[in-house]
């Protein structure tokens, strides 16, 4: 089986500091991949590189066999690689409904329609997406009026509305209440089960990673320290050490 995404020799230096150092990564459609590692390990930067938010200093990225290294972020999204950010990033002044709708309008390449009303576009898809994340009742609120946990869900719904084949979630539960966290994880598990999208999950919580992911990559100082099944990772001495050394 070919990887849906394969990156080779990826490196990125910020002001003399190698945030991502010669990384080789393969992602497959039949499993959820988890990326772990202590703060500053380079997890987010790696996702930035893979999704086109940041250009690599060197390396190649192939998605479904195509070289996407030079494609911009929006081109990659249209090619069905999407993500969420570690810090919620949605459209604060748009309504919840419009947040999803703009993703659908763009997916359907209707952004240039300049005369007909936007309100009637993609209604069914938006409805379905909002029901999926349990936010239908909030559709007419401006996104900035929601709680942080609700914003996280909208963030995820916006991302999914782009129809990604491959989707990176950068700490999707950070900063939400325990209850909302469980709901979010349940939702992600359900979506992963549906297999429309291949998920890559960045998380600090090992239990979450071991529950959701069939394959785990551990990063440390910009490089991949180890990868394998959750059991491999659990048994890995080196990983235990870096976690004990830098945080618990």
């Amino acid at each position: 089986m070919n990887p849906i995404l394969e990156a080779t020799n990826l490196s990125k230096t910020f002001a003399g500091m190698r945030a991502v150092n010669d990384v080789h990564i393969e992602l497959y459609t039949d499993r959820v991949t988890g990326i772990i590692g202590p703060n500053g390990a380079g997890k987010t930067t790696l996702v930035h590189l893979l999704t086109g938010h940041v250009q690599p200093d060197q390396g190649q990225i192939h998605f479904e066999g195509r070289d996407i290294t030079r494609l911009s972020a929006d081109q990659r999204v249209m090619g069905q690689v999407c993500r969420t950010f570690q810090v919620v990033d949605i459209f604060p002044r748009l309504t919840v409904f419009e947040n999803i709708q703009i993703a659908r309008i763009t997916r359907e390449a209707k952004n240039l329609r300049w005369f007909g009303g936007a309100a009637k576009e993609a209604r069914e898809a938006v409805e379905a997406a909002l029901e999926e994340v349990g936010m239908w009742g909030f559709r007419n609120r401006r996104a900035e009026q929601l709680s942080h946990g609700q914003q996280r869900r909208i963030d995820l719904a916006v991302t999914l509305a782009t129809d990604p084949k491959l989707c990176f979630l950068d700490e999707p539960t950070s900063g939400v209440s325990p209850k909302e966290r469980d709901q979010m994880l349940e939702l992600i598990a359900r979506l992963a089960e549906a297999k429309r999208t291949t998920f890559v999950l960045i998380e600090h919580d090992m239990e979450v990673i071991f529950n959701l992911c069939a394959h785990v990559i551990c990063m440390h100082r910009g490089a991949i320290l180890a990868e394998g099944t959750p059991d491999d990772i659990r048994a890995n001495k080196e990983i235990k050490e870096i976690y004990l050394g830098e945080e618990v």
Binding site: T51, H53, S72, A73, D74, Q75, V77, M78, C82, R83, F85, D89, I90, F91, P92, R93, L94, E98, Q101, I102, A103, I105, T106, R107, K110, N111, L112, R113, W114, F115, G116, G117, A118, A119, E121, V158, T159, A161, T162
Partner: peptide, 28 residues
């Protein structure tokens, strides 16, 4: 009409977050 259209919504999305706009696929 423009402000109420999909084009207008696209502009507003860019206003709210250019990064997010790019990450729904809009060439900002």
């Amino acid at each position: 009409r423009i402000t109420k259209s999909p084009l207008g919504l696209t502009f507003q999305a860019i206003r709210d977050s250019a990064t997010r706009a790019a990450f729904v696929g809009i060439p900002v």
